[in-house]
């Protein structure tokens, strides 16, 4: 810490040591004890500090906290309100078809999907049955051919 660096610190942070950089505070305080110039610089800085310290800002209005808390709760309520409003609608016609659609659409989709699955199952069963029949016929044919071969081999 030298006078040059002390001048820079005072120039940037003011005369109050509490605002000086922590890593240099102790060294600056030591210099302050031994240097009249440093002491004078600090006093000059205090003049501006005193003025700046009078810039007290009024506190926010007491209702600000309540407004903030109300806002986060109203937004959550707003999402439900929007959904309810959309489902119910605003006109008499909308009162009828919107809830019906909201309930009916998933129902129709569910039924359609079930029917599709059932159909697929039936087709699979048919395919398996046909495969079994074909396999049986093939086995019979194979047996017949084997018999013929045996007869031929006996003849030979």
């Amino acid at each position: 810490m030298n006078l040059e660096r002390f001048t820079q610190i005072i120039g940037a942070y003011g005369g109050n040591p509490a605002r000086w950089p922590l890593t240099e505070r102790q060294a600056a305080l030591m210099l302050l004890k031994t240097s009249m110039t440093a002491h004078q610089l600090q006093q000059e800085a205090f003049a501006l500090d005193t003025v700046l310290d009078t810039a007290s800002v009024s506190l926010p209005t007491p209702l600000l906290t309540a407004r903030i808390l109300a806002k986060i709760q109203s937004r959550q309520a707003d999402s439900w309100q929007w959904l309810t409003k959309w489902l119910w609608g605003t006109t008499i016609t909308q009162h009828l078809w919107r809830p019906t659609l909201a309930v009916g659409l998933p129902l129709i989709f569910g039924l359609g999907f079930s029917l599709f699955v059932i159909q697929q199952q039936e087709q699979l069963i048919q395919y398996v049955t046909i495969s079994e029949v074909t396999q049986d016929e093939f086995s019979e044919l194979l047996d017949t051919q084997q018999q013929t071969l045996s007869e031929w081999s006996q003849w030979l």
């Binding site: 506190l59 600000l64 906290t65 903030i68």
Partner: peptide, 24 residues
């Protein structure tokens, strides 16, 4: 943090109402 942030916004803008809106 309400008061420190309000002070900061108020000093930056110089206007109480806007500072409150910003903090909110």
């Amino acid at each position: 943090y309400l008061n420190p942030l309000y002070r900061f916004a108020h000093h930056l803008l110089g206007d109480q109402m806007t500072a409150e809106d910003i903090v909110q």
